[in-house]
């Protein structure tokens, strides 16, 4: 799978935009055997069956130096995927209860899963964080992202701070890194049926944003 052929595959998002019929398959294994890690156990292994997994895996298509870097910092790539929905399900073992609590179905398990996919990809692949800058806890960047149906960036705006401070400053660097991370993570190849859920997102990068 790796190296040479890869970059070209990357170019063409269309051939990876597949069958969302498979989607339910991916929900199942996650739900039943809690212990099992990933959709691996699937009997019929259609290689890139899961578009969400593709979204994660597209970064496999790199050349060696990047692969090396990655080796050095072992990424728990699939983990967050399993992790988050799992806890979500634990919270609410009964779907009904979940419905009532959340109301109106605004957030499905799928939403949570999409969220955690994007989070883990930004964290692991695209964003370098701000830990190395002075007073990192003050460097929080909020952005609004609009995505096209094919996953490319339609619009990316700074919400807070409202603009990049001119000149060299830690906040300037934090803004640069945040915007770059979001651009770098594109295209966001996500289930087209759910487009309404992901065509707009607020993205918060920084130590000051604690996770809900």
């Amino acid at each position: 799978m790796p190296s040479t052929a890869a970059p070209i595959a990357e170019e063409d998002p269309e051939d990876l935009l597949p069958d969302f019929e498979e989607e339910k398959d991916t929900e199942e294994p996650e739900e039943t055997p809690e212990e099992k890690p990933e959709p691996k156990p699937k009997p019929a292994p259609k290689p890139p069956a899961d578009p969400l997994a593709d979204f994660l895996n597209q970064s496999e298509t790199t050349f060696k130096s990047e692969i090396e870097t990655r080796k050095k910092q072992p990424e728990p790539k699939p983990l967050p995927v399993v992790d988050k929905p799992k806890t979500a399900l634990k919270d609410a073992p009964k779907p009904v209860a979940r419905e009532t609590r959340r109301g109106a179905g605004a957030r499905t398990a799928n939403t949570a899963r999409i969220e955690s996919l994007i989070v883990s990809r930004i964290r692991n692949e695209c964003w370098a964080g701000v830990d190395d800058l002075p007073y990192p806890e003050t460097l929080n960047v909020k952005m609004k992202l609009e995505v096209n149906l094919n996953g490319t960036v339609a619009d990316l705006r700074l919400i807070s701070p409202t603009r990049r401070p001119l000149g060299n400053s830690p906040m300037g660097t934090a803004v640069d890194r945040a915007l770059r991370a979001v651009n770098k993570c594109a295209p966001y190849r996500l289930p087209k049926e759910d487009y309404d859920q992901w065509k707009e997102m607020n993205i918060y990068l920084g130590l000051g944003f604690t996770k809900k």
């Binding site: 999409i114 370098a128 309404d196 707009e200 918060y204 920084g206 130590l207 000051g208 604690t210």
Partner: peptide
């Protein structure tokens, strides 16, 4: 409905 993507550190 909007996704809220929160990443505190990387």
């Amino acid at each position: 409905a909007q996704l809220e993507i929160v990443v505190d550190r990387a």
